[in-house]
């Protein structure tokens, strides 16, 4: 993947400097019978501008729920989301765009129409839209696939379309909900490296939900490890490995130490999640 998707807002403007701060978030799903499922409890964390935060935790611990609250699609039962400007005052809500585990491409639209969907809704005129779409597709190495339908593409290509569709909006914050979870291991490795390069070159604020410790360390500046349900933040771990990172990074001593640390935290939680599923 090549460097920045440049059109639209330039980086460094006021809203891109806004931090997203979650304060004491809690969410309980009301279910038809029995007590509500508490998905999140007392989650406080901050997503700093220009920083990539990975969220890792056992299945069903509320990672997607947290992302939906940050996106503004879910109202938390307790707590709130605040936006803080560089001087600590309240800022405007940053724009966001999501990359989904199941891609969620519109099957009846071509690659170009899928990527241009958000711009079209925003009223961007066709020539400008076409230009930006082509640029975004080039950034994910999909130039020449404009008129293909999603079903004609491989899983890895589909998710690159999903990535382009989010990037073309030039969001202040990029949300990635297990973006490579549905892909095979090799495709996943390649896309992780490509995403790492993209994130490094754009310096975009990103929140990455993942199951993969390797993915978290490769991509993130900070890793939030969550507990089994009800989801809390068990630990916040800074990743100080220099960039650019790639597959070679996995051989470094700092990488191994971090991996062991996160795995140690995660193993207990995954076992706890499995036990509570069993009863």
């Amino acid at each position: 993947m090549k460097a920045a998707v440049s059109s639209g807002q330039a980086p460094g403007t006021a809203s891109t400097m806004t931090a997203v701060v979650a304060k004491d978030l809690g969410l309980a799903w009301a279910i038809r019978q029995g007590t509500p499922v508490v998905a999140l409890e007392g989650v406080s964390c901050a997503f700093a501008p220009g920083e990539v935060t990975a969220i890792i935790g056992p299945s069903g611990c509320g990672k997607s729920t947290l992302l939906q609250i940050v996106r503004g699609f879910l109202e938390p039962s307790t707590g709130s989301i605040a936006y803080l400007g560089p001087d600590g005052s309240a800022g405007a809500a940053p724009s966001m765009a999501t990359v989904w585990q199941s891609f969620n491409l519109f099957p009846w639209l071509t690659v170009e129409e899928n990527v241009g969907f958000g711009l079209e809704l925003a009223g961007v005129a066709k020539p400008d839209r076409q230009l930006r779409v082509r640029e975004a597709l080039a950034a994910v190495d999909l130039a020449g696939f404009e008129s293909k339908l999603p079903r004609q593409l491989s899983g890895g290509m589909r998710q690159r379309v999903g990535l382009a569709r989010a990037l073309v909006m030039n969001p202040d914050v990029l949300l990635l909900d297990e973006p490579f979870g549905a892909l095979d291991a090799q495709t996943r490795l390649v896309l992780q490296e490509q995403l790492a390069r993209l994130v490094e070159s754009t310096r975009k604020t990103a929140i990455l939900v993942t199951h993969s410790i390797e993915e978290a360390i490769l991509l993130a500046d900070k890793v939030l490890v969550m507990t089994a349900r009800p989801g809390r933040i068990a630990a916040e771990i800074a990743v100080d490995i220099p960039r650019p990172r790639g597959h070679a990074t996995t051989g470094r001593a700092e990488y191994v130490a971090l991996f062991e640390q996160i795995y140690g935290l995660l193993r207990d939680e995954v076992e706890r999640a499995m036990r509570s599923e069993g009863n």
């Binding site: 699609f73 999501t98 989904w100 969620n104």
Partner: peptide
């Protein structure tokens, strides 16, 4: 697919 509705909402 509810995912498509979410994606559209996400795109504004």
């Amino acid at each position: 697919d509810p995912g498509l509705v979410l994606a559209a909402r996400d795109l504004g």
